[in-house]
Every structure is written in structure tokens, then in C-alpha cells.
Design a protein around this nucleic acid. Structure first.
Lengths: 223, 223
DNA sequence: CACAATTTGTAACAAATGTTACACTCCGTG
DNA sequence: CACGGAGTGTAACATTTGTTACAAATTGTG
């Protein structure tokens, strides 16, 4: 097999090694090596290809106005770069991508990847699943960040958990993880939660929350 | 033509009326009428079909813990419901959808719509463009909401506008629109901007902004 | 059981933002 | 020109959140 790592990619899941080889060979692909530290793509570049990390690792970095960089995330084989953006209107890379180590990337033009998807329904469904799941994830995050107060975020969060109707839910994250999820600091979250408890809205025992006053819980943002 | 409104849908753009008819007829579709006020889908329902509004209009509504509803958006012909989520893992409607007026919806099963896309490359590309563009939009919004301070959001916003390199940009939105985009109130935005001006970071004349001190502009969040 | 690491609760103060209200400029209209 | 609306600048005060620090509770481990 040419690129053995691909059979662990969600994009090619359900396909045999032979089929993957056949698909890759049927198209005009390139593979390109980058030495450690090399720029793979520059923020603002047009996204014209699917780029899949085959070996090594790369990282996304945002650039500050002064040129200072902030690391966003590492991308390891067999993940793809900006997979959910490829066919977007005027899609551009939102960040710089730099090789952490010597790295090799598989590059397939966007039109040719479209042909591949057209020829294999499983590949198409795999890609659609990836993009739609990403959109779901982003939309979910956006909902929580758009709530103003921590109380609102917390109220909506616990009411979305299984068991909310029965008035008793269990949060399966640490407070720190939940705070990160909400985009707030942990002490602030703890303060908001204990405030809601002393207001009689909920009753908290560590990760177990009982909903005491549904009506006020939902209207707290207006009072 | 069976459903004339479809030729104005981005999903079918580039296809002739005859082709659209052919595509629809080749698949097992349903069209369903809802009287004004009827529930079209319930929050949490599995997304198993593509649903396109053919006539009338429907609205998305979030439900509060008490049952109070908050209107999210209206959906008019020929828009689709939750188009970017259809193929997501365990995709569920994030909101209730209710008919504003008597409304008719075209319903095509998700697997069958996949077949349609497999048979027509233009349809496939149209759908991919829609989903990816949506992911881009969500990702962009998420970036701004994840900046802590208004100054940071504003700094990143103006530095992403054309002309930022020349040190002079023009914002083509009202202050109110920009404040909504950032998820803050207008007076707060105005205060942050005038604070940055009196700190010598920028010079503002209504919608025209000159960048005076790029270095400090990007480090303001740490001071 | 003793111990360390993790997680959570809480407090005091600083910083940022929301809220409300009002004045001012710009611009189109009668 | 007078008028009104839209957009903007600004101020005072309340509220919320961040920051920092430390204590208490829980969990895992030898």
C-alpha cells in the first residue's frame, strides 16, 4: 500500500487498502515533503487542494498584528487541513500551518477530489459526515458563547443533559473543562453555580445537580 | 415545472428547469403541507431528510426551560432546514420549527439525496459549497466570540479588513451591527474604541480608522 | 493508612462590560 | 429652513467577570 496511514482516516473508512490505492492512483495527486519549521500554508492562501498529513506533524498558528504567533492546534496523520472549508466560497486558510517535524503531505486538487467522491459513494458520505459533524460542533459551541451570562450558559447546559426532565442531571466533565467549554474561568463558573444554589434555583453536590426551580432558572437572565 | 421555486435555490443553481424536474422525478420524494402554526420538526428529532420550504414560511424557535419560546430565524422558500447538519453524526434538529403561514415542504430522504448528488456533479458541488461556506461562517463568528475583550475583537476585526496593511481601513457596517457581530452592546463598543483612540492606538473618524501603533494594538490584551 | 495530586469552594479586589440616559452630528424630506 | 430619524459620542452607576490566592474535599496510589 502506498500510504498505509490512510486506512485509519475517517475519510477512507469502510474502504479496503486495495480500494484506497485504486482511488489514489486514479487521480492526479502529489505528495510533498516539508522540513521541520517550514511553512506549509500561509494564512489567507486560497484553499485549492485537500491536504492530508501522511507523516510527521504540523501545527496551526495564528498571527498577531505584531507577528507574534499563537499556537492553535497540532495536526497529526492522517488528519486533513481545513477539511470543512475546502469547497467554501472564497475559502482561505484561517491560520498559518507550519511543520513541527519533517512532514509529508498528500495533496489532491479540490476538483479532482470532487471527482473521487463522485465515483465512490462511501468516500462521499465519509466526507459529508465529516463536514456536517464539524458544522454541528461549531454551531453548538457558538450557542454557548452567545449566551451573555455564565448563569445562562450553565442553565442551558444542564437542561440539555439527559435527565433534565426528571430534575436531576450528572455533569460528566470537570469544572475546569466546563469553564473552558463556556469560555470563562473556573472560579467565575464556581461562583455563578454557588450563587444559583443559594438563590434556590438548583442544588449541587459536586457533579450531580438537582433542578429545584425551573421557572426562575430560565428567567434569571431578565431579573 | 413541478416546483418552480427550486430554480432560485442555490442548491440547484446551474441546472435548467427541465433538469431539476428530472432530478426530482428520479427520486422518491414527498411534499407535505402544514397549516399555519403547525410543528414542522421538534427540537431533538433525528435529521433524516432534506426539507426544503416550497411555499409559505416557517420559523426556528428555541424552547426555554419553562416552555417559553425565543424566535431564532425565519426560513423562506427555497431555503432548506438545517442543511449543513444533515449528514452529521447523530444529527438532530437544534430547534423547533413551526409554520408561520400555511406552508409546503419538499422532503427527500437523506440517502436518496445522496444518490442525487452522486448522479449530478453540479448538485454535489452546490451542496458542498453550501455546507463548507456555512462552516466557514460559523468558524469566523466563533473566533470573534472567543476573544475576551472588546479591544481584542476590534483589533482583530480591523486588521482583517482590506487596507489594514496600509494602516487605513473603512468599516462598512454601523456601530450597532458591529456590536451585534461581536456579541456586545453598542455603548460598550463605542467606549472601547474611544479608549483605544485616546491611548493612541488608532485614530477614528466615524467609519474610517487609521492604525497608529500596530505593536501596542496587538498587545493591549496583556497590559 | 498516609500521602500526593486533582478537583472544588470561596474570598477580596481589579477590570471589563452592561444599562440607561442624553446630547450631538449628519442627512434626507417636506 | 425646520424637522425628524439614524447613527454616534459620552457619562454615571450597577453588574458581571477576571485574577489571585488559599483552604477544603475527593480521589488514586503505594
Amino acid at each position: 500500500m502506498k500510504f498505509p496511514v490512510l486506512n485509519r482516516s475517517p475519510l477512507f473508512s469502510g474502504l479496503s487498502d486495495t480500494e484506497i490505492d485504486g482511488i489514489i492512483d486514479s487521480v492526479n495527486y502529489r505528495s510533498r515533503s516539508f522540513p521541520a519549521g517550514a511553512m506549509v500554508v500561509i494564512e489567507g492562501d486560497d484553499i485549492s487542494s485537500v491536504m492530508i498529513v501522511l507523516s510527521g506533524s504540523v501545527r496551526g498558528e495564528m498571527t498577531d498584528l505584531t507577528g507574534r504567533t499563537i499556537k492553535i492546534e497540532d495536526i497529526h496523520p492522517p488528519q486533513a487541513l481545513a477539511a470543512a472549508f475546502i469547497y467554501g466560497k472564497e475559502a482561505r486558510y484561517p491560520v498559518n500551518v507550519i511543520a513541527n517535524t519533517d512532514a509529508e503531505l498528500l495533496i489532491i486538487g479540490r476538483a479532482e477530489f470532487l471527482t473521487l467522491m463522485n465515483n465512490d459513494r462511501r468516500l462521499l458520505l465519509n466526507y459529508l459526515t465529516a463536514v456536517c459533524t464539524r458544522a454541528l460542533f461549531l454551531s453548538d459551541r457558538l450557542r454557548f458563547l452567545s449566551f451573555r451570562t455564565i448563569r445562562e450558559k450553565y442553565a442551558h447546559y444542564i437542561s440539555s443533559l439527559p435527565g433534565a426532565n426528571s430534575g436531576r442531571v450528572v455533569i460528566n466533565r470537570t469544572q475546569q473543562e466546563l469553564a473552558d467549554y463556556f469560555g470563562v474561568t473556573r472560579p467565575s463558573l464556581a461562583r455563578a453555580v454557588s450563587g444559583m444554589e443559594s438563590d434556590g434555583l438548583i442544588s449541587v453536590d459536586r457533579r450531580e445537580v438537582r433542578i429545584l426551580d425551573i421557572r426562575r432558572l430560565s428567567t434569571l437572565s431578565e431579573s
